[in-house]
Structure formats: structure tokens, C-alpha cells
Amino acid sequence: MIVPYTHVILLASLLFLTGMICTVLRRNLIMLLLGLEIMLNAAAVAFVGAGLHLQQIEGQAAALFILAVAAAEVAVGLALIVCIYRQTGTLDPECIESDVCELE
């Protein structure tokens, strides 16, 4: 017997909240991406917990797809960040935004 399902979901929701705060409150694109990763991981935890709760393997399959999507997302996101850094010399979202604004 493991813990109740609600505890797993609570853990996942806390992780998600942390990731969300990270994406919203850090002025750094890399940290923003890290926050996204944390949120995806939280979703995977929730899926695996739900799979165990419902005694279905389906949840694990969804978690696997999350893993694969996260890998693709990180690769593209980091490449974009590197590109942005090369062009603007900064990772601050606000500065980038203002750069774009200037160019328009």
C-alpha cells in the first residue's frame, strides 16, 4: 500500500506551481525554459499517479509521450535561445521585447 492518490496529485500540483512561478517571475529565458520543464515533469508525475490509481497502463504511456515532447521542445527552445542571444546579446525577455519594438 502506498500513499493516497490525492497526495501524489498534491505533489504534482506543487511542482507545477513552482514551475509556473519560475516561468513568470525570472527575467532569464533559460530559466523560463527550465520552468517549462518542471511543469511538464509535474504533469508526468500526475499521469503516472493516475495510472496507478486507476490501475491502467495508459497513464504511463501518456507520461512517455510527455517525455518525448519535452525532449523536442527543449532542443528547439534552446536553439532559439542561442539564436536570440547571438542576435541581441541578452537573455532578458524585456530587453528582447524592447529590441523588437525598436526594430518595428
Partner: peptide, 13 residues
């Protein structure tokens, strides 16, 4: 769109 990226993120959430 000229709003900052994270503000948009917040709106989305």
C-alpha cells in the same frame, strides 16, 4: 504583442 513575454504567459495561465 508589444507587452512583455511573461505578462502574456501570465494571461495565458
Amino acid at each position: 504583442h508589444r507587452v512583455m513575454i511573461q505578462a502574456r504567459l501570465m494571461i495565458m495561465f
